[in-house]
């Protein structure tokens, strides 16, 4: 049955990581170097080597993920281990340096490592939370199906608006032009689309028309819901155009709900991917810093 990355194989790697932590803490407490614990003692070197090997292995996950035909464990198992052992790395690295920090390349490596790990934590959070949100938001439709429906509503709305008035037609046309789904990183993450504007404009158009007809200006306020608007329309004189307008608003609100869902879908997907654009480049930087750290340590000898 389905197992999440945290419970994979009865959380086998959680126990491995815990054991690693306990052994490291035990040795650290037992070991009493002179003058203070640091990276230069035998334990410091041992933990440093373990840490460096761990980093190398954690980096290999990127390779493993792309080795589709390997029979070396499942990707899920690797990811589970990647998370738990990556978390344990915080402790291993801190014990390795004996909590000594400074403004140097060594601490730079540590800071980079922590950044990588914490961006990874965000990733774990996102992976556990967003999939279910995404499914709920989609309501059993695919993104393509929703986009198709939007395009279709656009067509129908345009045809309907054509029969009402040129200004309404223009409003709908502009709404179609204004509906932008996806785009740059920021747009994707903000989950905004231009579909709201159309409804506001149509509302204005109704108000305007009513003013021209000598009726009272529509008592519509900004926060009013579409349902209220439909009620409002129903109260108006029963003419064909009003009826068409009401249908148009129905269509546009359906479109708006779809567009909102698509935008949110894109947002969720973007969030699930964006952190990797921090996690992966930082880990490559970490690799460089780590090599510099190791190399420079040899000059102390």
């Amino acid at each position: 049955m389905h197992e999440s990355i945290l419970t994979h194989a009865r959380s086998r790697y959680l126990w491995v990581a815990l054991a690693l932590c306990l052994v490291s803490i035990g040795l650290y407490v037992w070991h009493d170097p002179d003058p203070v614990p640091n990276g230069g003692t035998w334990l410091g070197y041992t933990l440093g080597t373990i840490g460096a090997l761990l980093i190398m292995w954690l980096l290999l996950f990127g390779v493993r993920k792309r080795s589709y035909s390997t029979s070396l464990g499942s990707t899920r198992g690797w990811l589970s281990a990647h998370i738990y052992l990556g978390t344990a790395l915080i402790l291993v690295a801190l014990l390795h340096c004996g909590f000594q920090f400074g403004w140097n390349v060594h601490t730079l490596a540590l800071v980079l490592m922590l950044l990588v790990i914490f961006s990874g934590f965000f990733g774990v959070y996102v992976y556990l939370r967003y999939p279910a949100l995404m499914t709920r938001n989609r309501e059993n439709a695919t993104r393509d199906a929703m986009l198709e429906e939007i395009a279709e509503i656009d067509q129908n709305a345009l045809a309907l608006a054509d029969g009402i008035a040129p200004e309404i037609h223009a409003v709908v046309l502009r709404s179609i032009e204004n509906t932008r789904l996806g785009g740059g990183v920021w747009t994707q993450l903000r989950a905004r689309d231009g579909s709201d504007i159309a409804i506001a404009r149509i509302r204005d158009a109704i108000a305007q028309r009513n003013t021209q007809l000598g009726a009272k200006p529509a008592p519509l306020k900004a926060g009013q819901t579409i349902i209220a608007m439909v009620d409002f329309l129903a109260d108006q004189a029963d003419d064909k155009q009003t009826e068409a307008l009401r249908r148009l608003i129905d269509m546009l609100s359906r479109k708006r709900s779809l567009a909102t869902r698509v935008a949110r879908d894109i947002q969720y997907q973007a969030i699930m991917e964006i952190w990797l654009y921090v996690h992966v480049p930082l880990s490559i930087t970490l690799l460089a810093a780590l090599l510099t750290h190791i190399l420079s340590v040899f000059f102390y000898w």
Binding site: S4, H8, K65, S71, T75
Partner: peptide, 28 residues
Amino acid sequence: DQAGGAACVRACPTGAAIRISPEEFPAY
């Protein structure tokens, strides 16, 4: 022809994909 079995399931990083047979449906 793959040594490790279904690649789709093995490549799933989060354990979302599984393959089961209908006999397992009640348990599933």
